[in-house]
């Protein structure tokens, strides 16, 4: 599904990514963990080109996208992204948030969009909020709408950038529940998160990033019970307590 070769990214003098290699197949759920500032989010943001990579190549469904300039909008339509801060459009209702992009891009007509929007809202358990505005929702509800919005483009890949980090603790569960459901349905997902129990439960593969490189990867069992790298061990000791 997506293949990353030797990805480098610099912000001014800060070398954030120092050669990331990734190969993620269809249906796989990959969770990226690592300390803050390790470059986890930057990896995600490079994948859909919210950040330009300085060098390296990214293949999405076989198409090289790192250097392509023209068709990035087409690529992004197949790559949903969920942000830490939800980024719902505050001037649109919940339903409009979901249906705006697919109707604007002529993927479906208004009526179909409405039906699809409502069924997506049903999936995330928020059908009754269709005509609410984002500021009338709780954080957990906002994030569920954001997931529905990303799904409305029927993407092949979903990127989650710390989707529960801005939530009150009691709302984390409802968002993770939606993501678990999505994983079960076979969605290809790349998730940056600090929720280790969730990672353990849903991930097919855990990737540990520190200092801009992948230090260790493997299935949750290996990583959590028997990490090989010293820095992985230290990190896990700190977060899993």
């Amino acid at each position: 599904m997506i293949k990353v070769i030797d990805l480098h990214k610099k912000f001014k003098n800060l070398h954030v990514l120092k050669g990331i290699n990734l190969n993620i197949s269809k249906g796989e759920v990959v969770v990226i963990i690592g300390p803050s500032g390790s470059g986890k989010s930057t990896v995600l943001r490079c994948l859909n080109k919210l950040e330009e990579a300085d060098s390296g190549e990214i293949f999405f469904k076989g198409i090289p996208i790192a250097q392509c300039k023209d068709d990035i909008n087409k690529i992004r339509q197949n790559m949903g992204m969920v942000f830490q801060n939800f980024n719902l459009f505050p001037h649109m209702t919940v339903l409009e948030n979901i249906t705006f992009a697919p109707t604007k891009l002529n993927k479906i007509n208004k009526n179909e969009a409405k039906d699809m929007g409502l069924s997506l809202l049903e999936r995330v358990g928020l059908k009754d909020k269709a005509s609410s505005f984002p500021n009338q929702l709780s954080g957990g509800q906002k994030q569920r709408v954001a997931i529905a919005r990303a799904l409305a483009m029927s993407p092949d890949l979903m990127l989650f950038d710390e989707p529960t980090s801005a939530l009150d603790p009691e709302m984390v569960g409802e968002v993770l529940e939606v993501m678990k459901q999505l994983a079960k349905e076979g969605m290809t997902m790349i998730i940056v998160t600090h929720e280790m129990n969730f990672a353990k439960e849903v991930a097919d593969r855990i990737i540990f990033i520190d200092g801009g490189i992948i230090l260790e990867e493997g299935n949750p069992e290996e990583i959590f019970t028997n990490p090989k790298n010293q820095r992985t061990q230290d990190f896990l000791k700190r977060v899993v307590s």
């Binding site: 919210l50 909008n73 459009f89 990303a150 483009m153």
Partner: peptide, 8 residues
């Protein structure tokens, strides 16, 4: 970013 990430 959210708008662009949807492919708009």
């Amino acid at each position: 970013e959210a708008a662009r990430s949807l492919g708009l």
